[in-house]
């Protein structure tokens, strides 16, 4: 029993099979994910130019709707939209409309009335972007910038881009994702993306209190021990550990977590010698990862930040063109009647 890829596919793609919303990796096939990576590759070159702009979203309005604070993700989305020549509106909803009692639907309908073309949504509740795409503003392209514990698909795709840059392929790769899988939207999206792109084995590594129930149905192998979890891995992904986990009686202490699951030079030695180390950031040095590893030769953590803008440009331009193709087809059908 899994989530329904068919229904996710249906909602994310227009009738021509092009991306129109980017809500989760579920339901997207290998070709489409590869297209995102290839498009992102072409945008990396834009970032290296002296004028870092392309006109793909000229005249379009992109609204960053962050119901949960995030400086880093929001800035990369903003930069990506601006490099695509869009008009960008940043709304920090956690401190505006909803605190005055306005419902989420009403806030969004108001924004739609301002002729918005795209909402970049971050929300603390799983499924919020699905809800918006399905029930509130289906004519606006929705890009999921992280929802609850569910998905963070642009983060996963930028990680995929980083892996492809370093490994050149996904076939045959063994990837270990370590830490708080239970609360991680990043891990869920990474697992789905890796399996779709053809990785040989995806492992999740952590204590039982931080692993989701029936996790094997995600298609992963479960390890409680770092030694077995990292053995012969090509890629090691460390997840951020939140302070609240100690208060929720999920972990005794940061120190104990670091001893068991923190990525040190010794533990990294279980992995393949050419293994790369990734982390979606922000890093807790001395909690998930030793500084020597984070800054060491196998770390590609900084690389991930650069790729973030390119992937977000790719997804935004693809979703916008999918929306426009659908609108045009609808207009033609209307005209021919």
């Amino acid at each position: 029993m899994s989530t329904s890829p068919a229904s996710d596919r249906h909602i994310q793609l227009n009738p021509f099979g092009q991306l129109r919303h980017f809500l989760s990796i579920d339901g997207l096939d290998r070709n489409l994910l590869t297209e995102i990576l290839d498009t992102a590759d072409s945008f990396i070159e834009v970032g290296e130019r002296s004028i870092k702009k392309v006109p793909l979203l000229r005249g379009r309005t992109v609204v960053n709707l962050f119901f949960e604070a995030s400086t880093r993700t929001r800035s990369t989305f903003e930069l990506a939209a601006k490099r695509l020549s869009a008009d960008v509106l940043n709304l920090d909803i956690s401190t505006s409309a909803t605190s005055k009692g306005e419902s989420l639907s009403d806030t969004l309908l108001n924004l739609e009335a301002m002729a918005s073309d795209m909402f970049v949504v971050r929300h603390a509740q799983s499924g919020a972007p699905h809800f918006i795409a399905q029930s509130v503003t289906p004519g606006v392209a929705i890009i999921n910038a992280g929802d609850g514990r569910h998905a963070h698909p642009t983060q996963a795709m930028l990680d995929m881009l980083t892996i492809r840059q370093h490994k050149g392929r996904f076939e045959g790769l063994v990837v270990a994702i370590v830490g708080d899988i239970l609360h991680s939207r990043v891990a869920r999206s990474q697992v789905r993306a890796l399996l779709t792109l053809g990785a040989e084995e995806v492992r999740i590594v952590g204590p039982n209190t931080l692993l989701p129930r029936d996790a094997e149905t995600l298609g992963v192998k479960i390890h409680n021990d770092m030694r077995s979890g990292l053995r012969d891995a090509d890629v090691v992904i460390m997840l951020r550990l939140q302070r609240e986990r100690m208060e929720g009686a999920l972990l005794p202490s940061e120190r104990e977590f670091y001893r068991q699951y923190g990525l040190t030079t010794e533990k990294l030695a279980y992995a393949r010698p050419d293994a790369i180390v990734m982390h979606p950031g922000p890093i807790n040095r001395g909690v998930e990862i030793e500084s020597a590893v984070a800054d060491g030769p196998q770390s590609v953590i900084l690389n991930q930040v650069t790729n973030g803008i390119a992937v977000r440009m790719a997804v935004m331009s693809m979703a916008m063109s999918g929306q426009l193709a659908e609108r045009q087809a609808a207009a033609e059908t209307q005209a021919s009647k």
């Binding site: 799983s126 499924g127 514990r149 569910h150 998905a151 939207r185």
Partner: peptide
Amino acid sequence: EGSVATHLGLPG
């Protein structure tokens, strides 16, 4: 709390 909540990231 089962496979569907795990996939959807819903608190179980």
